[in-house]
Design a protein around this nucleic acid. Structure first.
Lengths: 214, 214, 214, 214
DNA sequence: AATGAATGAGATTTCATTCAT
DNA sequence: CATGAATGAAATCTCATTCAT
């Protein structure tokens, strides 16, 4: 009595990816069981294996596909944009917009890396490195152009990405703010953050390390 | 002469917490098995239950203790500091310093919240809310004082915390930069980010939503 | 233009039998999966059922066909052979020769009997009994003729069959010895083994049970 | 509610080995499920893992322990026995006796080798090789002494071992024959088989290969 | 005659947890 | 306070088999 209930044919794979995305986002990769996933899709657990080869491969594909999309769309967004300030603005707008639309993929791609087995991990980290380098290059250019002032490009890169990525932890569609307002808020923070200020209000760092615990 | 191998008496609990911290940081709460933990400590799995009541409770205690410490130390750091700029600077320095020293607790307290059962979750989220409110208050004060310019205080709060928290994902002691340099870099980013700029180079947000996907 | 890949029409069944033979020989019936078998044949697992009715039936047919062949060819080999010595020599030569040529069938027919379901098992054991009886009859005749001297015909029958059958576990075509040399070696062993010896070197059995363990 | 039912403490391992031996003998390694085994022992399937590390390791240990015993006891039986004829007689008596007492171990050690993973397989085959060499040496010595006449020592070795091992497929305690009678029957077959016969009744091998099927 | 997707049962193994000793 | 053996549930994954297309 085959195929009397549940999802059919070519759409099953899409249903698996979608449900998998949601469940991993919600509970984490380790905590999502294939039973849950199958139930969500409406098939028996064993039937998943007509579509995926392994739980691990499912994760890996979700992440890899996402990062490839991210990179491709970033290229498109940056095409024909010139000047570090302009490019940084576009980067931020793109990144925030993307993360609001596909926050689940983004979150997973950041938080579940440790669940990838070594081979997949390497591949993904390499792709992520390419993305980070886009931002690092913009910052470096801006410093060279004299329009940016950052203490350390590396730290600034990580910090900006963290800041931007953080929002898929709290953003809910239909919240108090429009997408554009959220984008604007981040643009302000990031652009101000890396730009030089005429009147630096006070010296920083150095002798003040006393208030850091340890 | 039993007890010749493994942890002795009063220190076992400390060993469990320490190993648990490391293992959860490394593999995640769901992926850490109590067998692993026991092996790390040098006792049998069953013996763990002389010290903890439940895997869940272990997680919850690690997180709760951390957040309590964090709050208490933040209070101390902010005592007798006045003015939004000064207080924000102290907040950043404290937060970054703390996260570099105890990155594992911090990471876990952020990434494993979803593994807490509802009761523990509520408690921890409440504590975390208190911490967030400290920063939100500083920002609000700064805006009222006219020294800060943020598009949205809420967004800025989340963004700054994400930015600061992000570093426990990449920071490794003994890296290229000193702690103080890292603190300085973040101070610059955050303070610049929230301060008004005399010459705003271009309008933001609004009509440019075209380059946000989705 | 479907059916461009995989087996075509009337030969598919033959491919299944051949691959099945090899896989069962190699891994055993229980350890061979129909997925493996299908892959070997170049079709999908479901497609096997256009040719076989059941995994069990496939095994049963392979074994039954083999034993029928074996019996038929043995009849042919023994036709018009007279005298116990001559008939035993022919039996050995036939058996060894057959086993070298079709060692896979032979091995399976001996080692996978336990995987047959009861009905098939009965049928096969009956056929095998017929084969064994051929040898037992030769031995009985030889004893009656006075040319053979065996302690117990039943034991001798089983022993000789084991001895002969054993070689499909180690024989590899193209080894050190020719087929004929292997046949000759076995003829010597078996014929000497059952023939009386003029000078029996020492009494056997009885009082010496001390060196048998257990 | 631990340990309320089922086997307790230090004897459980023994029960597992015993039941495992019987089940593997009966159904084969692949066909024996750990559920069956656990049920037989009177514990839950998962509880097996307090005693074994893997189904594979259970098999490997059963086989390896058996072969080690076999070798050790063979050494003891052959100690202070001299002359190829005497040593061969002792070998046969020992071997047959051992196989009747522990036919399950013996059978498994012969038929389930293919289920061992490569590392265990190598180890076991090496041990088995040592055992085979004992017999091969006896035969070689006998040929040198002029008391044995075999066409090929290698073939004779394999053949004799097959013959002797075969009996654990049909032997049932309490059958028609006593152990000593069975031993005697095998001694006669083997010793006659390898001894020279004064009157060789007819030429063998060579031109007669015509009756071996193709 | 082949495919692809499904089923339902069952495989080995892991897990958190319990508790008599 | 530690151990070792147990539980019962659940994990991922495989299997023989079915059947509409």
């Amino acid at each position: 009595m085959a195929r009397t209930i549940g999802s059919h044919g070519p759409t099953t794979m899409e249903a698996i990816r979608k449900a998998g995305l949601r469940l991993i986002f919600q509970h984490g990769y380790e905590a999502m069981s294939l039973r849950q996933l199958a139930a969500e899709v409406g098939i028996q657990p064993g039937s998943l294996y007509n579509h995926i080869s392994t739980k691990q491969e499912l994760l890996s594909e979700l992440i890899q596909d996402h990062i490839n999309d991210l990179l491709r769309e970033l290229e498109a967004a940056l095409r024909d944009r010139h000047g570090a300030v302009e490019r940084l603005r576009v980067f931020v707008a793109f990144h925030v917009g993307y993360h609001m639309t596909r926050k689940r993929e983004v979150f997973i791609a950041n938080s579940e890396l440790r669940s990838l087995d070594p081979r997949n991990y390497e591949a993904v980290v390499a792709l992520r490195g390419a993305y980070e380098r886009r931002l690092a290059d913009i910052l470096t250019d801006g410093v060279a152009e004299g329009v940016f002032d950052v203490v350390d490009v590396q730290v600034a890169t990580f910090a900006i990405l963290s800041l931007l990525t953080g929002l898929c932890s709290w953003y809910r569609p239909g919240g108090r703010l429009t997408k554009d307002a959220i984008i604007a808020a981040h643009e302000k923070l990031v652009l101000s953050g890396v730009m030089p200020r005429s009147a630096e209000p006070a010296p920083v760092g150095g002798g003040q390390s006393g208030h850091t615990p340890g």
